[in-house]
Simulated scan of single mutants.
Amino acid sequence: MHLVETMAYAGEKPWHGLGNNLAPQQPIEVWRQEAGMDWKIERSEVRYITGSNSVGVINAFPEQKVLYRSDSKCPLAVVSKRFQVVQPGEILEFYRDLTACSGFELETAGVLRGGRKFWALARTGQSTTLKPWARTHRRSHVYWRAVVDKALIREYFTGLSSRAETACLKAATQQFYECCMKSSADSSAPLPHDSQPAG
């Protein structure tokens, strides 16, 4: 089961096969719609019923608010009245200048857990390549070699809403390690000296 509700991607299809494929360098408005981030988070007072068997007086609890989706009216969380809402579209809006002026390229964006989380990921254009390397592994008298012919490290910038109950918005650069790896298992093969990746 995937927690992805909706998402969009540019380039290679994700491993899970979900999402709407977009041509590169689409405007933020297209990403917002195709990633399923074209709704707003609304708020309402928490209300409760006093009495027996849900029959009685409806009361308000002004210190707490219910957050819910504007499109489906589904509840997202109960938060304090001081909670600052980050809208799904604001995550993408953050990337507008970065994609227009700084060479960033949106790669994925979407909604998780019914709207409780949403994210966007952009490639920064920064990368480096490591030298080929090999490493020997042993498990239960079976040895195998992992040989990396080419290793590419790409840098990405991620914007992620935290849980709907917290006011935290995370933004960070991350480096992903992409490699072309061969492996072989042979308990009788001679084991040459291991080499480590160049740092």
Rank of each mutant, 00 (worst) to 15 (best):
E42H: 08
V142K: 10
Q33Y: 09
S140F: 14
R47H: 01
S44N: 00
S102E: 08
T99F: 03
Q84T: 15
I28F: 00
Y95K: 08
E12W: 07
S183D: 09
Q175G: 05
A134N: 15
I49V: 15
A60P: 10
A167H: 07
T129D: 09
L76E: 01
E105M: 15
Q84W: 04
L3D: 08
E63I: 02
P197N: 03
H193G: 00
E90L: 06
V147D: 14
Q87P: 01
R123N: 15
A100H: 07
D194I: 09
K150R: 13
Q64R: 09
G11Y: 05
L160R: 11
N21V: 05
E93C: 09
E178G: 12
T124S: 13
E12D: 13
A189D: 00
V46G: 01
R138M: 13
Q33D: 15
E12F: 05
E12G: 03
E178L: 02
T128H: 11
C179L: 01
E178T: 05
T108R: 11
P190G: 00
C179G: 13
M7S: 12
G36T: 06
V46D: 00
N20S: 14
G56K: 03
A146G: 09
R32D: 04
V46A: 02
E29W: 04
V30F: 02
